[in-house]
């Protein structure tokens, strides 16, 4: 079974926002980055993956199982890290462990101890008094201590300093040496993903724009810069979005080869970063 998570035509409607017709597959053994602006639907999607929200339509499968009949089996195999502390605030790690550990059949105290040592986490200090980074490490230590196959993280790097973010990414790579593990993580800090993500899913205004390998992304998306005379009804078709100014235009294309054909040396064509893609998409798609 290749897909760890499968969302099929998933729709969730809220009063002022909706996620519509989402199709998303997460492949086993890879780091899957989930990007999108704040409020694009990342948390909603993750909540549906965790069965914290039930979709209005469509179905969610994790490890090929559905939540209706296999809720426990699924969650047994998931480790979760959320943005912000979900553990009982006034408690220390020792007590939190005492509550969480018995919930899992495969809880491994040795692994937990190993991470506690590695992260230098105090067991007897109230988690409320942990720094943001320490809280994240604590969540991670718990998420990694029951041999989870799928680690789901919602904005784990938000609010962390750059050094700590680097450390986290390194740790995630260490975890990935075990080829059975899958990491799905949402972020709006795209530089985190430039380094370690294998796949990128991009959601915008409740709709999935793409779900590709990083190679496919860098081989299809590019930034084209040139003189305004180059733009006409035909050439504009190559672009997702165009920004014009008095000195020229800058545009995002999702067809790098086509753009190279059309413009050749008459325009500057550069690699588009994930941030570029998010920024240009924010204005909405001009063509599909």
């Amino acid at each position: 079974m290749d897909n760890v998570v499968e969302l099929n035509n998933v729709t969730k409607q809220f009063k002022d926002f909706s996620v519509t017709d989402l199709n998303l597959q997460v492949k086993r053994g890879f780091v899957h980055g989930f990007i999108g602006a704040n409020g694009a639907g990342k948390s909603t999607t993750i909540k549906m993956m965790m069965n914290l929200l039930k979709p209005d339509a469509g179905d969610v499968k994790v490890f090929g199982l559905d939540y209706k009949s296999h809720e426990k089996e699924i969650k047994e195999r998931i480790g979760f890290v959320y943005d912000g502390n979900v553990f009982f605030e006034g408690m220390n790690l020792k007590d939190i462990k005492r509550i969480v550990a018995p919930a899992y059949k495969h809880w491994d105290d040795d692994v937990f101890k190993k991470y506690i040592d590695q992260f230098e986490l105090p067991l007897n200090k109230s988690i409320k008094r942990f720094s943001k980074g320490m809280q994240m490490k604590a969540s991670l230590a718990i998420a990694l201590s029951h041999h989870a196959e799928l680690i789901i993280m919602d904005e784990p790097t938000a609010g962390l300093d750059p050094i700590f973010r680097r450390e986290l990414l390194e740790l995630l790579q260490e975890i990935m040496i075990d080829g059975n593990r899958t990491i799905f993580f949402s972020t709006h800090i795209t530089t985190d993903l430039d380094r370690i993500a294998d796949y990128i899913a991009f959601i915008n205004k409740g709709q999935l724009i793409f779900n590709k390998t990083i190679h496919e992304v860098s081989e299809s998306y590019a930034i084209v810069k040139g003189r305004k005379e180059l733009l006409d009804r035909d050439t504009e078709k190559a672009f997702v979005n165009i920004h014009q100014s008095s000195v020229g235009f800058e545009a995002l294309t999702d067809d790098l080869a086509g753009a190279e054909n059309t413009f050749g040396d008459s325009a500057v064509i550069e690699r588009a970063t994930l941030e570029d893609i998010m920024y240009y998409m924010k204005g909405g798609m001009q063509h599909v």
Binding site: N51, L52, K72, K75, E76, I78, Y82, G84, V86, A103
Partner: peptide, 18 residues
């Protein structure tokens, strides 16, 4: 009083409980 908090419900529901 504890369980009223959303976070607690998110935690409990993320653990293998129905």
């Amino acid at each position: 009083a504890y369980d009223e908090k959303t976070e607690t419900n998110i935690l409990l529901n993320s653990l293998p409980y129905t």
